[in-house]
């Protein structure tokens, strides 16, 4: 008897957890399908005739499409750059002994923790002096400060898991370290590389503060755009939620793909 009862409490608890996690998304999507009149009904209505007008207006009339493309270009470029710089560094950290390893680790962890405002202040002044405000490249570079550490950390971890015997065999045949990395270790490390790319993409795509401070119109990112709808009195709630939905869908898909590694990545490997 008690066991069936505890089974039901368990199910009830699990359902509540799922609902609390998912409900805000449900509300976001339904609000995005409401006309302004329906969205402003008090108390809010749960059943209504859905419309895609908010999406159409946001994307094609208010320029959200362009900011989404900006975000995409920036997130993909910074991720590619982080991989190009980070993968060889990760290989060195996993395979070579050298001085200064400790300092690098310290630097990575500090970067995981430091508030973006600390970098945003000097970056703004530097970008302004160099005429780099409102340029894609500025965000691509500044996002490296958090993407590079995460890429290096995840890929190092992956390289460490590859048996050293493989390197040794190749080296006896005269392969250079670079060839060993590219031909032997990298193909085996692909899962880690993919996960690190997903992390890098999510962090860059989600970022607001730098986008807000360092861009105006040309390079404006999607989160910065969504926030700029919040000015004025008659807020277009449906449109804001439509933009939010467009922003959130890709990250949620990526996060679900990488869900098994999410915690390990967020704790920089402290939690297995």
């Amino acid at each position: 008897m008690t066991s069936t009862r505890s089974l039901w409490t368990q199910i009830a608890l699990l359902v509540v957890i799922i609902m609390v996690c998912v409900f805000p998304f449900y509300w976001m999507v339904t609000t995005s399908l409401k006309t302004q009149i329906v969205a402003l009904e008090a108390p809010p209505v749960w059943v209504f005739e859905p419309t895609l007008d908010n999406y159409r207006e946001a994307l094609f009339e208010d320029g959200v499409l362009r900011t989404l493309l900006n975000s995409l270009v920036i997130a993909v470029s910074t991720t590619v750059l982080a991989l190009i710089l980070g993968v060889p560094a990760a290989f060195a950290l996993a395979r070579f002994e050298f001085r200064g390893k400790k300092d690098l680790w310290f630097w990575f962890i500090t970067n995981r923790m430091v508030s973006p405002i600390v970098l945003a202040l000097p970056f703004f002044l530097i970008a302004r002096n160099l005429g780099l405000l409102d340029k894609h490249i500025t965000l691509i570079l500044i996002y490296l400060t958090f993407n590079l550490p995460i890429v290096i950390w995840i890929v190092t971890d992956q390289f460490r898991g590859i048996p050293y015997d493989l390197d040794e065999a190749a080296r006896l045949e005269g392969a250079s370290q670079f060839t060993i990395m590219r031909k032997i270790c990298l193909p085996l490390a692909m899962p880690g590389v993919a996960v690190s790319a997903i992390f890098s993409f999510i962090f860059s795509w989600n970022e607001l503060m730098f986008g807000l401070i360092l861009t105006r119109t040309e390079a404006k990112t999607a989160p910065a755009m969504a926030v700029s709808f919040m000015e004025g009195y008659n807020l277009p709630y449906g449109k804001i939620m439509a933009t939010s939905t467009l922003i959130v869908i890709p990250v949620l898909i990526f996060a679900l793909i990488a869900s098994k590694q999410l915690v390990r990545g967020l704790t920089m490997g402290a939690v297995k």
Binding site: L14, C21, P24, M28, W205, N206, P223, I240, M241, S259
Partner: peptide, 30 residues
């Protein structure tokens, strides 16, 4: 209860990945 637990674990991933700015906007609406 494997199935519902897997579902629960996947749902738990969603809030963590959500764009902070969108959380703020959701707050405005809700």
């Amino acid at each position: 209860l494997t199935l519902i637990k897997t579902l629960c674990r996947l749902s738990l991933v969603l809030p963590m990945a959500t764009t902070y700015a969108v959380v703020g906007l959701l707050g405005q609406v809700m």
